[in-house]
Structures are given as structure tokens and as C-alpha cells.
Design a protein around this nucleic acid. Structure first.
Lengths: 186, 186
DNA sequence: AACCATAGACAGACTTGTCTGTTTTTTATT
DNA sequence: AATAAAAAACAGACAAGTCTGTCTATGGTT
């Protein structure tokens, strides 16, 4: 499996954007880290904004895949729903954790940047849809309305846990939101 | 009550920082909006970072005062605890709402900026302490441990609601977290 | 020879922060 | 109350650096 130059660029940019922030990461830093020329980068992406969209997309895809795998290894039922939050425990511990790329990027762009905002929305919708699917599969007895509400709640607890554990640099927000979810499921 | 130049600077910078972001707001824009000279600004604040700390402090103080007043007008008991989240409903509607300045600023600064991070932590601790006080007053029958846990949960639901209603640009995260809190209080 | 990717110069537009010198406002003393 | 002294704010040029994105020229591979 060959790593294309484009993938290398996205990977490098993603790592730097996520670690140090979008605005604080310059194009020159990206090309230096990737070991490519500037012209090469601009032959694959027409602008930094373009690269940002690819970064968000890449991160979202990888996350969803990781959650999917994590949850599928848990036994069906409530356990699998709680696993969505428990996934964050290991993510937080991994050392790579640096909060939500969506919220962080959202904080860095101008208000009127619709392109990046659209990509962010897309990623969040995908996550929410996955949770909805999980709820449907593991809480089949609930009404559709109840399923949607539960999915929204899991999503909110997930997002809150990410945001706050990042800000506090502590894992208790994740643990506490897991406890909240457990109580809600009773 | 005279408005000092220093207050004018903080007010102007706060509005711009909060509206458009810290990095996207230049010193020149601040002085032009405030109608002051650059030397005047730098006679009151030794750097933009200094101004950022004042911005965070100012916002935190104003918020806590607003929440305090909002909650004190509600009847004691569970209602007053729920009011912490209900405060966000009107805040969101106000039009000034643009998410949490702490998280947004946190996303914009370098990882090693301890000064700004310390100020952010300070503000969040103050908010959490206020909630702890509220819980103590309105849930006197709970054990100390239970009080702290409840305060942490209200804080988490509050923060999650702020973060997600901002990202989604919708108020349902606030409403849903209010519902979660109500269930937890039962 | 044709084609890429490289290195890096460059333009143009930003940024923060310093500095000079003038003007206004406030405070203190007579 | 009038005048002198001190403090504060003014305008704006300027340095030194950042950034993105374009372009030229060099080198290596097929």
C-alpha cells in the first residue's frame, strides 16, 4: 500500500494543525515537516483553507472508524452505548488527545467562512447519525422519538466530555459524563 | 461614574476578541474602534497577551454577576439549580452569544502559554465554586460528596450546553441538557 | 528529451510593539 | 482664581517579523 504525496501532506498537516492549531501552523512548517516543496503542496491543494477541509475530513473519518471498532467489540445493549463515552477514556490517555478539532478550528476561523463551517457540520452530523444508529440497534424497544432524544443526549455528553476534559486537562469530566449516562439509561 | 481609558480599552478589546476571535483581532483595529492612540494602549497594557488576560477576567466577572442575579431571582431549591442552565437560554437568544471565550481563546494560543491558561483556569474555578455554593444552599440534605458530584455535573452540563449550542448554532443542546439535569434531580 | 519535485527567492499584505513629538487634560501651588 | 508643573493621550512613522501564495531555476528519474 503506497502512501501518496497527497496523503502525506494531509497527514502532516493534520498532525500539526491538531497539535499546534490551525493559524499557528504555517505552510512553511508543513512542507518542512513533510519534506516536500511548496509548489508540490499547492499542486495538490489550492489553498490553506482547502487543506483545512481535508484535515477535518481526515480526522472525522479516522475518529468514526475508531469509535466504530471500539464499540463493536463491546457486548450489545446499554454497554455498547456507554462505550461511545468510554472510548474517550483511552483517547484521552493516548497522549495524542488535544480536544475537538472541530471546535478548535471553529474558534480560529472568521465568522463568515462557510466552507470550513460546512465541513465541521458534516462531521458532527455523521457522528450523530452513527450514535442514532447505535441507539436504534441497542434500544429497539424505545419509540423513535425516544431513540432520537437518547442519541442526542449521548452526543451531548460525548461532546461535553471532550471539550471539558481538554480544557481542564483532566479525565474526570469524561468519567462523570459516563456516570450521568448510566443513570439516564436506568 | 467616569469611564476610565483603561476600562474603555478592555471593553473594546473584549467585544472584538469575543466577536471575531483573539488572533483575528489586531491591535490596530482595537485602537481604531476605541478611538485612542497606540501609545495609550501600550501605556496601560504591556502586550496583547496582557490585554487578553484582562479580557478573560472581564468576561468571567460579568458572566458570574449575571448568573448570580439571574439565579437569585428564582425560587430556592431545585429551581435555582436548574436556573444555571436556563440562564443560557436567554444568553443564547441575546445575539451577543458566541460560545465560551475560555475555550475559544484556549484554542488560539500556543500550548506553552501558561499565563493565559492560568487565567482561564481561574475563571472556570470561580464558576464551579459558585455552583458548589448554590448546591450547598439548595441541597442541604445531600452529603458533602454528593453535593460536589452534583455541582460537577451541573458545571459539565452547563459547559457542554455552551459549547455545543455554539457549534450547532442552535438552542436544542441547552434545552436537552436542562432536561438531563431535571432527570438527575429526581 | 520530457517530466516532476525540489529549493528558495519574492511580492504583498498582514502582525505587534517602539519611538518621536505634539496636544490636551489634570493636578498642585501660589 | 490664576498660573505652573506634571501626567496622560494624541497621531503616526517605523522596525522587524509573520503569513500565504506565486514564480523561477535547478536537479534527478524515467
Amino acid at each position: 500500500m503506497k502512501v501518496t504525496t497527497k496523503d502525506l501532506i494531509v497527514q502532516t498537516a493534520s498532525d500539526l494543525f491538531y497539535k499546534n492549531g490551525y493559524n499557528l501552523t504555517g505552510i512553511n512548517e508543513i512542507i518542512a515537516t513533510a519534506g516536500i516543496a511548496k509548489a508540490t503542496l499547492y499542486s495538490h491543494f489550492k489553498s490553506k483553507e482547502d487543506l483545512c477541509v481535508a484535515y477535518l475530513h481526515s480526522k472525522d473519518e479516522a475518529l468514526l472508524e475508531a469509535i466504530r471498532e471500539f464499540c463493536s467489540n463491546k457486548s450489545a445493549g446499554d454497554t455498547r452505548l456507554i462505550a461511545v463515552l468510554e472510548f474517550l477514556v483511552q483517547f484521552f490517555k493516548s497522549g495524542d488527545f488535544n480536544g475537538c478539532w472541530c471546535i478548535r478550528t471553529f474558534s480560529e476561523i472568521p465568522r463568515d467562512n462557510k466552507i470550513i463551517k460546512a465541513q465541521i457540520k458534516k462531521g458532527k452530523t455523521k457522528l450523530l447519525n452513527y450514535i442514532k444508529l447505535l441507539v436504534k440497534e441497542n434500544k429497539p424497544k424505545l419509540t423513535k422519538k425516544q431513540q432520537i432524544q437518547l442519541a442526542n443526549r449521548i452526543y451531548l455528553l460525548y461532546e461535553g466530555a471532550v471539550s471539558e476534559s481538554h480544557l481542564q486537562n483532566e479525565s474526570w469530566p469524561i468519567q462523570e459524563n459516563i456516570e450521568i449516562l448510566k443513570e439516564l439509561l436506568d
